[in-house]
């Protein structure tokens, strides 16, 4: 990844707030990240950490109200997606940014054929005729590894298995040759052997098509296998960001460190007892005034309770380019 090249997607200081009857929920707090061309950025976090909301905010998929994307810039090329009109944004969605959702069962329309649903973006965004679109749709289906593609275009979603449906979703997302593919837990609903198939497919497609991918997941194992760079989210914020090997070899944030320890290994030594992150994830009411992890952190001190830590680079490289962490504590530091 060349540091000098302009990123495909550059997000700065994104804030998303949900207005609920119980008050404001700050689901995304000043999240910044960029995506280089051809890169796969893994976004890891638990449910409620803001990883999906962040990505949905980028392309205006959150209903407003209750959602309110308050601040930030989302630069795709030289356009700020938060400033352009709804019509322009519709042209971006599907054409420039493809989206694959978690549940292939509910994200396909059951009353239209699969072919119909793959052709829709082709006709809408690429101005193809129905005939051209049908040819291209068949190509896409074979690209994602569905045999007998031309015939399967006439099938309905219920005639496909879960893994096959996710392949169809990927075909739709790739239809207009997008610059960026956002995949939101695309393998979470699938069995491990099917997940392995989809991961292979993605690796293969990256080589063929070279698009940049944001891969959202809670599974650190999946991330380890496919990501170039990883962003760890907790409580609506980015708490750590690093190249994948660096993150697994040298985790800095207490949350990342604890998270890596709670997963039992399949091949390593078997521990008598799993280490645990005590407590519950935070409720994100009101603007953050403390570190979101302070109540569960093993290294908490007074500063953590009164001041939300900013991201800081730990390897001297510009923020976001190397390894950075949002934490007041440094490993080796005992907080006397």
């Amino acid at each position: 990844m060349a540091d000098g090249a302009a990123p495909v997607l550059d997000v700065q200081g994104l804030n998303t707030v949900f207005r609920t009857r119980g008050g404001e929920v700050h689901a995304v707090n000043s999240v910044s990240f960029h995506l280089n061309s051809g890169e796969l950025l893994g976004v890891v976090g638990e449910s409620g950490s803001g990883k999906s909301v962040t990505m949905m905010s980028l392309i205006g998929l959150l209903p407003s109200p209750p959602a309110d994307v308050r601040a930030g810039t989302v630069m795709l090329g030289n356009r700020d997606l938060l400033k352009i009109s709804a019509d322009e944004l519709r042209d971006v969605r599907g054409a420039k940014i493809g989206f694959v959702f978690q549940d292939p069962m509910t994200s396909l329309n059951p009353v239209f054929t699969v072919g119909n649903q793959i052709m829709e973006p082709l006709i809408r965004h690429m101005g193809m005729t129905k005939k051209q679109a049908a040819v291209r749709a068949a190509e896409l289906l074979s690209l994602v590894g569905i045999p007998d593609a031309a015939a399967r275009l006439k099938s309905y979603p219920h005639q496909f298995s879960g893994g096959m449906r996710q392949r169809v979703m990927i075909a739709i997302a790739l239809a207009c040759d997008p610059d960026v593919l956002i995949a939101d837990e695309p393998t979470t609903a699938l069995d491990v052997t099917i997940q392995a198939q989809i991961l292979e497919l993605i690796k293969d497609l990256r080589q063929k098509l070279g698009m940049a991918i944001v891969w959202i997941t809670h599974d650190l194992g999946v991330i380890a296998g496919i990501a170039d760079r990883v962003m760890v989210m907790y409580g609506g914020q980015v708490v750590e960001q690093a190249p994948v090997r660096e993150l697994f070899a040298n985790p800095q944030h207490p949350y990342t460190r604890a998270l890596l320890k709670t997963i039992p290994s399949l091949t390593g030594a078997r521990e008598a007892r799993l280490s645990v992150i005590e407590g519950q994830p935070p409720i994100l009411a009101g603007a953050p005034t403390s570190c979101p992890f302070h109540a569960r952190c093993a290294h908490v001190n007074n500063r953590c309770r009164t001041e939300n830590p900013q991201r800081r680079a730990i390897d001297g490289r510009p923020l976001g380019r190397g390894h950075d962490v949002a934490c007041h504590w440094t490993p080796g530091d005992t907080h006397a």
């Binding site: 392995a196 380890a224 296998g225 994948v244 890596l260 997963i263 290994s265 399949l266």
Partner: peptide
């Protein structure tokens, strides 16, 4: 072999059986 291991180095060297 299909279970992803949270270890980037291992993930690259491991031979997967894709059913």
């Amino acid at each position: 072999s299909a279970v992803p291991e949270p270890d980037p180095t291992l993930a690259q060297s491991r031979q997967r059986i894709i059913l």
